[in-house]
Amino acid sequence: MAKVYVIGTMDTKGDELRFAADCLRRAGAEPLLVDVGTKARGEGADVTAAEIAAHHPQGAGAVLGLDDRGAAVAGMAEALTRWLVARTDIGAVLGLGGSGNTALVTQAMRALPIGTPKLMVSTVASANVAPYVGPTDLAMMYSVVDVAGLNPISRRVIANAAHAVAGMARHSLAEVAAQKPGIGMTMFGVTTACVTMLREALEATHECYVFHATGAGGRSMEKLADSGLVSALIDVTTTEVPDFLVGGVFPCDADRLGAPIRTRLPYIGSVGAVDMVNFGARDSVPSQFSTRNLYVHNPQVTLMRTTPDENRAIGEFLVERLNRMEGPVRFLLPLGGVSAIDVPGMPFHDPAADSALFETIRAGFVTTPHRKLIEVPAAINDRAFVDATLAAFREIT
């Protein structure tokens, strides 16, 4: 039977971790107690902190015995991640702890494939959990009381968590061979028409997984790619890049487009919705942008038109990553407009800004037998652009 990895600091949370392990055994699961205490004083673990720390690229000395607790926790997180992803007997992972241990254990959990059960019982789970969950299927449970001793409340919460992961480990869905290959797609409101036509053209032969490009969406799509759950990417909506570079509320991270670099998956991309940076309500737009071209999309979302300089930076970000892709690549430029509101008569129509974007990509793009730049004299939501994207997809898949 695959094991349930119970991870925490045995020196301070030993009673709670052992209680969780007992609950798992009674539920018919096999626990494995893993100590990640940076002082290496825990007792009773199946896997000691020293064993985990030894997986740090600089050795256990980069983790244990440090005076700087933050550095020690960061080092243990890296060591745990490297150790955990190499395991082949994981049925589920259960973490218990406060803010430091939550950051440590969830970093390692996020490195596991989508579908591997991951549950973190944490004192911070009632706050903003986005930094801990990221683009994964990691679940968090609020501990209610601190994970600092066993009492009637903590016993109930920990037991519920243990029984939940025992169920996930013991009753996982049998692997079913996909009837159709999967495709990851990115979409935003202003590229919906394009992606809808692409999906309708491909869904008879492919499973189409559409991701809302709101920061987490792009990361989630790339997590699926890294996990081997899609066979190609149709990434026409790279709008998270301007938010990352300019400071919007839907940013990607520095690893955007990293998955096709690592996996060499067929990649079809474009510049959908890079004409905008996203903010919240109109009064939430930073004061330095008050004189910019702003468009109130709805009461909760305000869009800001990107400038030529910003578009040059966006183009440089994209082309640097495209040139590192060694798998089959087709990148399309919609010369008639990059979104539904970047066409003649619409509020973000700005030929100078689009020209700066296109020229930057043209100048930096390195064409090879497997990597090609395709210019389409149409807007991104036009049928002609969709047809060109479909032709590129069929050429490389």
Rank of each mutant, 00 (worst) to 15 (best):
L112Y: 00
G115L: 01
L112W: 08
P152L: 13
A103E: 08
R110K: 13
A125Q: 10
D137R: 02
A130L: 12
V124E: 02
A139D: 00
A108Q: 03
V105D: 06
A148F: 01
Y142M: 02
V147P: 03
D146K: 00
G134M: 08
T102R: 05
A139Q: 15
G149T: 13
A139E: 01
Y132L: 02
D137L: 05
A148D: 09
Y142A: 07
Y142V: 12
N151D: 04
K118W: 04
D146I: 02
A125S: 13
S154P: 08
R155W: 04
A108V: 12
V144T: 11
T136A: 10
D137E: 10
V133H: 04
P152R: 15
M140H: 10
V105R: 06
A139G: 11
N151Y: 00
S154A: 04
A130V: 10
A111N: 02
P113W: 14
V133A: 11
M140T: 15
G100V: 09
G115P: 04
R110C: 06
Q107V: 11
T116F: 11
S154M: 05
V145R: 04
L104I: 14
T123G: 13
L119M: 07
A127D: 15
G100W: 04
G149F: 04
V121K: 00
N101C: 07
Y142H: 14
A103W: 09
R155L: 10
V144K: 09
P152I: 14
P113F: 13
M109G: 05
V129K: 13
D146W: 03
P117M: 06
N128C: 09
V133E: 14
A103D: 09
L138G: 06
S99A: 15
M109C: 13
G98H: 08
T136S: 15
A103V: 10
M141D: 05
G149A: 06
A127H: 14
D146R: 00
T102Y: 05
Q107S: 10
M120N: 01
M141K: 04
D137Q: 06
T136M: 03
Y132E: 02
A127C: 09
V133I: 15
P117V: 15
T102E: 01
P113I: 13
T136P: 01
S154Q: 09
T106S: 06
L150Q: 03
S122Y: 02
A127L: 14
S154H: 01
S126C: 10
S143W: 11
R110A: 15
V124C: 08
I114V: 15
D146T: 05
S122E: 01
V129N: 14
S122W: 08
T116L: 12
L119R: 13
N128Y: 07
V145S: 05
T116G: 10
A103M: 11
S154E: 08
A111G: 01
P131F: 02
L138M: 11
A111P: 00
G134Q: 09
Q107I: 02
N128T: 13
V133S: 14
T102S: 14
P152M: 08
V144Y: 02
V129C: 13
V121M: 02
N128G: 05
L112D: 00
L150F: 04
Y142E: 00
P113L: 10
N101R: 05
S143H: 05
T116W: 06
T102G: 06
A127I: 15
G149S: 06
I114R: 15
S126R: 15
A125K: 13
L104K: 14
P117Y: 11
S126P: 03
P117T: 12
M140F: 12
A139I: 12
M120Y: 03
I114Q: 11
N101K: 07
V147S: 02
